[in-house]
Amino acid sequence: MRIGGLARFRLRAAVSAGALVAPVVALVAVQLIGLSGGDGPAALQMVTAACLAFPVLAWAVRQVLDAEPDDQALLSALAVGGSVRGTTSGLLAAAGLAVPAALACVWASLLRVDEQGVSAADLLAGSGVAVAAAAAATAVGAVAARAVAGTGAMPVVVLVAAPVLVAVLGLADAPGVGLLVPRLAEAVRAAYDGRLAEAAPAVIGQVLLWSCAVLALRLALRRP
């Protein structure tokens, strides 16, 4: 309850500070460009939208987390009872932005589906992939935030390297790849092959587990 209230305040503060204007513009632009190729199967449209949203949402997450000055983050953490709870409130604020934004992108992509429309199973799977992409974006954004990556070039490196690695390693079959990157690209391949509904649970599970592991490591750092 206390953490949720602080999360809402932090998200409102980031919005009112204008920290999200650039990521939102970028998100709309990426979606318009990425889905401008014409009508396609609904499943493919949805997971493409989710994957395109992932790096921009990671940037937006970082913006939310970094909107609060360091000492104010310390004060917030003190108010809610410690650095872990303070960090959790920031991550909740970020996820509160990323999840609805990812779902909006995925559902908006359905405006361009082909004449076959969308099945309930694909809609559910596509929405699940959107939530998973938002979780992965929250994890990457948390690592790129000032408290972890500092203020130099490292945040940019993290934000650029993450989607590149997701694209390059995401389709590799080598053992252990699932530990390194969220396999969002696997959802695109499954959608292209027309088997998103069957593949989605495994993909979503892997992405959520990867995200939770990264976020747990972030919390273990105990830096507000």
């Binding site: 206390r2 209230g5 305040f9 503060a13 204008g18």
Partner: peptide, 18 residues
């Protein structure tokens, strides 16, 4: 360095303190 109103900030901190 935040745009939040001082009153809203204090209210949020009071709520964060339970």
């Amino acid at each position: 360095a935040q745009r939040a109103l001082a009153g809203d900030y204090l209210l949020a901190m009071a709520r964060a303190r339970g």
